[in-house]
Amino acid sequence: MEDKVEKSLANYDLTVKRRYRHRGGWLLETTQGPKLLREYEQIRGHFAFENKIKEILVLRGFDRVDQVLKNGADQYVTELESGEKYVVYQWFTGEECDLRAKPDLALAGENLARLHHALRDVCVLEEEEPVPAGVPLLERVQKHTRELKRIHTYMKKKKQRTEFEIQAIGCFERFYEKAVEACGRLENCNYYCKIMEEGGRYCHGDYNYHNLIRESSRLATVGFEKAGKGIPLLDLTYLMRKTLEKNGWDRKKGMILLENYAKKVSLTKEEQEFVYIMLLFPEKYWKLLNGYFNHKKSWFSEQSLQKLRSLGEMEQCREQFLKNYENGGSFL
């Protein structure tokens, strides 16, 4: 493997001082700055589209992204005589975005707004579009809600229950009611319906703290493997949920992210309703029950039980955060 790495790097005008494994590839410390070498086989299905999107972003001023470097033959992909293919990305020094730090949250919100603004009205050739993955959001939320009911029924029928099952049954109604409400609201959400009628809009698809690298007071955005047409506000709600979970549903932390996004891209009441719906659905409760149901059901880990207990203890804080919207039909 080391020999193949050396052969692939020989095709680039790079002076490598040190390299080590990182994010499924090799992080390269070079005299021209940090780079990331990856095997093409890991990314080929999405590579051309991802490149196109990043080229457009750079042209529109959103240039702190993991662009692909061309080799000496002016090609993005380097193929060895043995058939293996490699790609080199521009990379960044720094730490992952810290969702507990207010300055990082402000940067993350503003950065996402700039990204979404840069992706507006993007035109990509049909043959360059990636094949859409997964099922529509509404169908997925409805499916998850049915699964909650099915798992609850299964646990209720058991004569001997584990502590995890007892805890899960005890808080079921509280979470299930919110799942049902989220389904009903999403089905009638104007923002969601409009996006689906349009066929989706371009977004990052995996906007999380692992893909945000902080260098001083700036963020670099990487990990565009899931970029494509979808629902832009899912980028925001995904990061908001992670932020709120890590901070005990602290209102101030959640609002820093939301407010800094809204400074750059104004949020209508319909869009804020979508944010509310996605935060209303008990995603973490579903994940815990789904993990339990898809594994050996007579066994549970102490870690899963602790997560479930913490979820129950934190639910009042989550409900309090959601009341910020419920009391006036707006977060802002």
Rank of each mutant, 00 (worst) to 15 (best):
Val77Trp: 03
Ala113Ile: 00
Ala10Lys: 04
Ser216Phe: 08
Phe281Gly: 00
Asp66Phe: 04
Leu239Gly: 08
Ala220Ser: 11
Asp121Val: 07
Lys149Gln: 12
Lys4Thr: 08
Leu212His: 00
Val88Ser: 02
Thr145Val: 00
Asn260Thr: 15
Thr78Asn: 10
Cys171Phe: 12
Met1Asp: 11
Glu273Gln: 13
Arg161Glu: 04
Ala262Thr: 05
Val16Phe: 09
Leu258Asp: 04
His144Val: 12
Glu187Tyr: 11
Trp26Ser: 06
Ile213Val: 01
Val124Lys: 01
Cys193Lys: 15
Glu198Pro: 10
Asp250Leu: 14
Val131Gln: 08
Asn208Leu: 02
Cys193Gln: 15
Met255Pro: 13
Leu59Asn: 15
Asn260Gln: 14
Glu2Trp: 02
Arg19Phe: 00
Gly25Asp: 00
Tyr238Met: 08
Lys159Cys: 14
Ser216Cys: 12
Leu233Ser: 06
Tyr76Lys: 04
Cys317Tyr: 12
Leu57Gln: 09
Lys158Pro: 02
Val65Gly: 02
Gly94Ile: 06
Leu289Ile: 07
Asn111Gln: 13
Asp63Lys: 07
Asn260Lys: 15
Gly170His: 09
Val58Thr: 05
Lys85Val: 02
Lys264Glu: 08
Gly254His: 06
Asn51Gly: 10
Lys287Ile: 01
Cys189Thr: 10
Lys263Ser: 12
Asn11Trp: 11
Tyr89Arg: 09
Gly134Ser: 05
Lys7Met: 14
Val124Met: 01
Leu322Arg: 01
Gly291Phe: 03
His152Asn: 07
Lys229Pro: 10
Val141Ile: 07
Leu233Ala: 06
Glu259Asn: 15
Leu27Gln: 08
Ser301Ala: 03
Leu289Tyr: 11
Arg214Lys: 03
Gly248Ala: 06
Ser216Val: 10
Ile256Thr: 15
Arg18Trp: 06
Ala106Cys: 14
Tyr20Lys: 13
Asn260Ala: 07
Gly248Arg: 08
Asp235Ala: 11
Gln306Trp: 13
Asn290Gly: 07
Met278Tyr: 01
Gln320Ala: 12
Met314Ile: 05
Tyr325Phe: 12
Glu163Phe: 09
Gln306Thr: 10
Asn111Thr: 13
Ala262Glu: 07
Tyr276Asn: 01
Leu99Tyr: 06
Arg44Pro: 10
Ala101Lys: 12
Lys253Phe: 10
Thr153Asp: 11
Phe92Leu: 01
Val5Ala: 07
Ala262Phe: 06
Gly33Ser: 04
Asn188Ile: 12
Arg23Tyr: 14
Leu233Arg: 02
Thr30Val: 11
Glu41Trp: 11
